[in-house]
Amino acid sequence: MTPDQLDDHANAPSVTHTWRTRSLLHAARPYLLASPFVLILTLFLILPVMAIVVISFWRYSSFVMTPDFVWDNYKIVFSETYLRTFLNTFRYALIVWCLTLVIAFPISYFLAFEIRSNRMRTALFLLCTVPFLTSNLIRNIAWIPFLGRHGLLNSGLLAIGLITEPIEIFLYSDVSIILSMVHIYTLFMVAPIFNTMVRIDHNLIEAARDLGASQWRILREVIMPLSSTGVMIGTIFVVSMVLGDFATVSIMGGGQRASAGLAIRKMIASLQYPTAAAMAVVLLIVTLLFVSVLMSFVDVKKEL
């Protein structure tokens, strides 16, 4: 191409035009690619959340909601009854978190360090996910014939003579709620811990042993610190899910137990939308605070 030809091209208006359009398109590309997701998030997350925040300040009487800016709903939420409900929810979260962690850590350890073959490890991990082939509700309900007054557990214990009368607290109690929650949420603790553990270089363990570390010290000094991000992520999963749970509390509590999620559901059922909204806002803030504190300890990007 001679310099003259180059000049010709530069002067042709149509060429400049397409070139400009193209570069614009090129610059817009990432935004265009992100836009469907932005749209979905805006429509189905941001707008509803904003609506909830707005409604939480509205007034309502038995059947009518009036746009307003009052703190009445929050006063109800912060009344003793609902503070107790929150407290109870936190208690569930704490207990379930402890139990899932205690169960998940050895499972992950076993999968990551005791199982030598990769295929076997994947197979066993998939086995852990089998309960997820049925819905949460069904898994909850499935506990009822087992735990009930005339359930398998009680009849079994009666048959072997360990007890003389059926034990009532197995079902529709904190025991059944926590049992069911642990059952449902343990996998959410196993998966991230397992994920960080399998990536621990086995040479590190050998190096520690070479330097005189016992099995316990290896666990304490190497494996636990290196899987702590997995524990953090699992904690975020489990705690935020327990805080928002209402189905398990409803089914396994038999209407006797309260949690924040269940309270919101009950308010909605009795058409107290603004109070429900206020409760939801408080729950959301608590959960976000908790998650943001934990996230500050974790480099999530590194984990993905």
Binding site: N203, E206, A207, D210, L211
Partner: peptide, 11 residues
């Protein structure tokens, strides 16, 4: 004492 390939330092 062993020095490992890729060193196996505790990260």
């Amino acid at each position: 004492a062993m020095m490992f390939q890729e060193y196996a330092l505790f990260p």
